[in-house]
Design a protein around this nucleic acid. Structure first.
Lengths: 216, 216
DNA sequence: CCATGGTAACTTACCCAGAAGTCACTTACT
DNA sequence: AGTAAGTGACTTCTGGGTAAGTTACCATGG
């Protein structure tokens, strides 16, 4: 017969790396929904079906857990934007292809975007430095495209380029969040929508950009 | 001689309505900087030079205080966007004038925008309902302008209009936040910048829109 | 084929700082 | 004297973080 104690301690047969991935994925979802400041690790542990100390065992602190989520998000997002930039597309085509690639990257883990842009993330030097590193790389790619666009309009003001880059990033933000709020829409739906909206703003394109499976 | 007790209780000659306005203004700043979840009323009381119980006396709870800030922000923002819409401008002119009016409204209290868009605001029915009410009114005005623009491009898809409205709101968000992060720029600077950027995207305008003191 | 011990995966039960919220009280103005 | 403005000092509770222990798995030696 079993002991009188009904302790549920002991391994469940899940290896550390796999468990870490699972915790990061669930924590990312919760951070994205409530923000870093509004998230309690007790809630994360509950949703993951484990106990709080295991999180501390693996990640050291709440901030450490957030840092792991941020790394996951930052690596993916930077990779997408830098790879897309290397395609050498310009103007409208570049916008559409970049968004299409973002949708593809975010499809499995939409929380990454909101975690990366969480305004309540801890203001410690470590997190700030980590975020800045990714943000700078993304901003560099964005500002390069924007400067090109502004130059065509005869504008070389660096502050204008900075403001416009911020605006563009927020357009991405809006479309990604709109997508998260409309779970019925597939990635292909969103890309088609992006093309229609872009056409309404900039006018129609000369040639269709390469999207979807053509690049994945 | 004074008593041995150096109690600092007693009125300071500030009437309740004035004190309430002052508390809302300071709380708004703190909420905007750290988010609702990251803000402690002790810190707010400290910055206001009063004690915490006075806040509870006047606002009942942390949520009540946030609600007061939200009311302040919502009323102002809705008023601006609805009043501007009534001017009957269209397209590029409408965008520029609306932004110009937003800058003017936010100049004295820039925190209003961030409080209105705080992702960590309490998820209680009261706050949610209050925020939704303002958000719906603003969205309605925005979607009307966007639908018109899309209709000119031969697009009447309501989901497209919804997504594009979200994108536009976030462009506003980006420019307002950019402004908050660049305190050296005056409202006139920002409006001039808006006009340059709008021209680069849409092409130059036929006639100059009425901005600045012309409408205030 | 079984005991035995080492280790990795896990949990229960706790500590403690800080923040929400309250009570009884004090002071100043009219 | 009455009332509005205001506070010090509490209670309560949540949430980050920890100490110490429990259970399962897996290697070895008999």
């Amino acid at each position: 017969m079993g002991k009188a104690t009904t302790s549920r301690a002991g391994t469940k047969g899940v290896a550390r790396p796999e468990r870490e991935r699972q915790i990061v994925d669930i924590a990312g979802r919760v951070f994205a929904e409530h923000g870093y400041a509004g998230t309690s690790l007790t809630a994360v542990a509950e949703q993951a079906g484990i106990s709080k100390p295991l999180i501390y065992n693996y990640f050291g602190s709440k901030e450490g857990l957030f840092s792991a989520c941020l790394t996951c998000a930052g690596e993916v997002l930077v990779e997408v934007i830098e790879r897309t930039a290397r395609l050498g597309l310009v103007g409208q085509q570049r916008v559409i292809v970049t968004l299409d690639q973002f949708y593809a990257a975010l499809e499995p883990r939409p929380w990454m975007w909101r975690v990366f842009r969480d305004p309540t993330m801890p203001a410690t030097p470590e997190i700030t430095a980590q975020h800045d590193q990714y943000a700078r790389r993304m901003h560099a790619v964005g500002v390069e495209g924007v400067r090109e666009l502004l130059h065509l309009a005869g504008n070389d003001d660096p502050l204008d380029a900075s403001a416009m880059t911020a605006a563009w990033v927020n357009v991405f933000d809006a479309l990604v969040n709109w997508w998260i709020d409309h779970p019925g829409e597939s990635r292909a739906d969103m890309t088609a929508r992006t093309i229609r909206l872009s056409g309404a703003v900039f006018g129609p394109m000369e040639s269709a950009p390469p999207t979807g499976a053509a690049l994945d």
